[in-house]
Structure formats: C-alpha cells, structure tokens
C-alpha cells in the first residue's frame, strides 16, 4: 500500500458516499445514469470473484464488500425505490451500454494476463470500468445543469483513477517485478475520458458558476 493508492481508494469511497448522500438526502436520482451504476456493479462483481478465495488484508476485504454492497444498493434503489425511481431521467439515459459490455468482454477474451476464468473476468472488469462513466457523462451533457452533489460525485470518481496511475508509477519504480500493463493503459484511458469534465468542473469552480457541460 502507498499513499497514492490509499488516497485513490479514499476518493473512490468518497464518490460513493457523495452519491449515496445525494440519493438519500434529496430522495432523488436526477442527473444520475442508472446505466453507469449498473456497469459499476458489474465491474465490482466481475473483479472481486476472489473475495472469498484470496485473502489479501482486512482493509482489502472490507473495501471490496463496501464497493459491492453500495453499487448494488444504488442500482436497486434507482430501480425499485418508489420515491427515488420517479426522478430517474429515463428519457435522457439512453446510452447503449450493452455495446460497452460486449466490447469489454470481447477485449478481455483477447487481451488478458492468463486465459483463465478469473483472469478474463478481471480484465473484463478493468476494461468495463474504463468506459462505464460514458453513459453518465452523456447524461450530464444532455441534462444541462448539474447539481453540486452529482458534480462532486463525478469529480471524485475521475480523480480516484488518476491517483491509481500515480500509484502504478510509484510501484513501477519501487518494486522489482511490478507490471500491470492492462490496468495502467486502461486507467489512462479511463482518466482521459474525464478530461473535458475536469476542465468544465475547474472553470465552474474558478468562476464560482454552476457546472454546465456543453451539449
């Protein structure tokens, strides 16, 4: 564990807590893409198959459980909770995310560390996580004004993988046989997808204006 990775994990956790706060405090999921939330739930379920077989540390196990439970709870809440689901922007959340699923799985079959069930699902979760934010970014562009909590949610979600890139650079220089090309390249793509969001988020923060993504 290093400070970059810990900071990244805390930002990831913060993004989930901000999203839970928004949904439970405002009893609304307006501006949130259900498709992105479904993809994230799949990312965690596909990545943490080793939850009960490989024990890494208490921290690792607890965080995996938190991510799995929170992501499935958010999907369940947006689909089933009578009050929350009324505010879901169904007509705006139209990104065909099944393509992202199919493409990520196809790529995982071709590019993986070992052609085993667990490694293919791990690579699938890495590729899927890189593109999972797309339905959310498209929804933000369509829904014009972005409320503060939603903006903070996306910001922390983008920042977490940027810190993971610093973590991989650090590990590359400090550990002998460290090589995670699949995660590194995918993480770079993932963070790059947030570039324009980060730019408009910074502008709105600097000018103290409402965050607005150009359509």
């Amino acid at each position: 564990m290093n400070i970059f990775r810990f900071a990244g994990d805390m930002m990831h956790l913060t993004s989930i807590l901000v999203l839970l706060l928004k949904i439970y405090a405002t009893k609304s999921c307006s501006g949130i893409s259900l498709k992105t939330q479904e993809l994230y739930a799949l990312v965690f379920l596909a990545r943490y198959l080793d939850l009960f077989t490989d024990f890494i540390s208490v921290y690792n196990t607890i965080m995996k459980l938190v991510f799995i439970v929170s992501s499935t709870a958010i999907v369940w809440c947006m689909k089933r909770d009578r009050v929350v689901r009324r505010s879901y922007d169904k007509q705006l959340d139209t990104f065909r995310h099944y393509f992202l699923l199919a493409a990520s799985f196809a790529l995982a079959l071709l590019v993986n560390e070992k052609f085993t069930f667990q490694e293919i699902f791990w690579a699938f979760s890495i590729y899927l996580e890189a593109v999972a934010i797309l339905p959310q970014l498209v929804l933000l562009q369509r829904s014009g004004n972005v409320d503060n909590l939603t903006g903070q949610y996306v910001f922390f979600l983008g920042a977490y993988r940027a810190f993971y890139i610093l973590n991989w650079i650090y590990r590359y220089f400090t550990e002998t046989h460290f090589s995670r090309w699949i995660a590194c390249i995918s993480g770079l793509v993932q963070t790059a997808l947030y570039a324009d969001f980060f730019y408009y988020y910074y502008i709105s923060w600097k000018n103290n204006t409402k965050l607005k993504l150009p359509a």
């Binding site: 690792n60 965080m63 046989h177 460290f178």
Partner: peptide, 10 residues
C-alpha cells in the same frame, strides 16, 4: 509469483 498475488489492488 502468481499473478493473483499482484491482484492486491481494489
């Protein structure tokens, strides 16, 4: 080391 050991990240 097996690749699984490298899966120490979330």
């Amino acid at each position: 080391s097996s690749t699984n050991e490298l899966k120490d990240e979330l």
